[in-house]
Design a protein around this nucleic acid. Structure first.
Length: 338
DNA sequence: AAGATCAGCAACCGCCTTATG
DNA sequence: ACATAAGGCGGTTGCTGATCT
């Protein structure tokens, strides 16, 4: 037989906490410490579920919380970490002392996720660009469980902010028209404006735009569907650079073993390292990359490495977990994000 | 001035993992 | 070894105050 139930939920208070309840909870925890959430409400004389007490304490009553006014520095950290780890709010919160996962989640949902990202165009082949993929995806209505509230993104049509791939925010002029529907290329620019919208109604015609994760999903789906079309989303270069991935080159790299410089020399400009078969699961790969990081100032090689890294990272879900198994990979991630 | 709409955020819900009996 | 509760986490809801029409 297991434990007794957490709480029967009958006759318990719900909704906002009163000052009196806060005081009771705070006093109790100061006297008895955290933990034993199940028995806490009863012992403290609170008509609340233990879970509710825990949440209230962790998110609002703890003394070491900062509360409010998330700085631009913190915002940048959140943006970067979210780009790497997705909605792992507790993980992100652990990097921000005094901030809770709930606070960061709310901040992301109400502020950051609405901002637009801009990505360099990987190439101009329409069928394989994120733009095309974005369009394809946006015509499929997203799942939506919400309360039926009006989309906040749709409400704030002129609120656009662009992000470069390295997540440096650049505010758009307030009077600049918003990016014209999900993923349309800016006129005369090499950037594709991809926006954020987890609540968009599924059509580019009504202002729907793509969130970062949707872009990533789209990218990976594209790869799964068309194995000869490497994603190239994380091509770090501008349009002048030559290492944009062509779709007709899948020649294996003769230097695929480890040496990044050799690889970039021979395959250079035409295929991503990830797609050419480098074993990024291998420790020795990361060692060599780290060595490259420490010894070379060749930007082109470095960009290749970054590209391969991010392609690999998002190629499969489990790759993210593999970061934990490669100390050098984690160092690389920090390096790429810095 | 009043109602409608928008935006922020506290708190709930339910699933998953871990701990315990 | 198994069943079940506790704890933890992310998604979602809905209340409240601000702003707009």
């Amino acid at each position: 037989m297991g434990r007794a139930p957490c709480c029967d939920k009958v006759g318990l208070n719900k909704g906002r906490w009163t000052q009196e309840e806060d005081q009771i909870l705070t006093n109790y925890i100061h006297a008895n410490g955290e933990g034993s959430w199940r028995s806490l409400p009863k012992n403290a004389g609170l008509l609340r579920c233990g879970k509710s007490c825990r949440l209230r304490w962790i998110n609002y009553l703890r003394a070491d919380l900062k509360r409010g006014n998330i700085s631009t520095e913190e915002e940048a950290i959140i943006t970067k970490l979210h780009a790497s780890f997705g909605n792992r709010w507790s993980l992100i919160a652990s990097q921000l002392p005094g901030r809770t996962d709930n606070e960061i989640k709310n901040y992301w949902n109400s502020h950051l996720s609405r901002k637009l990202y801009s990505f360099p165009s990987p190439n101009h082949k329409e069928a394989s660009t994120p733009t095309a993929t974005a369009t394809k995806i946006l015509h499929t209505p997203p799942k939506r469980k919400g309360s039926g509230k009006t989309s906040r993104w749709a409400m704030k049509k002129n609120k656009t902010t662009t992000y470069s791939i390295n997540s440096s925010p650049q505010k758009q002029k307030p009077d600049t028209p918003p990016a014209k529907s999900g993923g349309e290329e800016e006129k005369g620019s090499d950037k594709i404006i991809l926006g954020a919208s987890d609540e968009c109604e599924g059509s580019i015609d009504d202002g729907g735009v793509l969130s970062f994760n949707e872009i990533m999903d789209a990218c990976c789906m594209e790869q799964l569907d068309d194995h000869d079309l490497p994603c190239g989303l994380f091509t770090v270069s501008d349009s002048q650079s030559s290492h944009v991935i062509p779709t007709d080159n899948d020649t294996p790299c003769p230097n695929k073993s480890v040496n990044v410089d050799a690889h970039s020399n021979c395959c250079s400009s035409n295929t991503s390292m990830a797609s050419s078969g480098l074993d990024l699961d291998n420790d020795s790969y990361w060692e060599s990359v780290l060595q490259l990081n420490n010894t070379t100032h060749d930007e082109s090689s470095w960009e290749h490495t970054a590209e391969a890294f991010f392609n690999w990272l998002w190629e499969e879900d489990h790759h993210l977990d593999k970061l934990g198994q490669h100390a050098d990979a984690q160092i690389m991630l920090d390096s790429f994000l810095s």
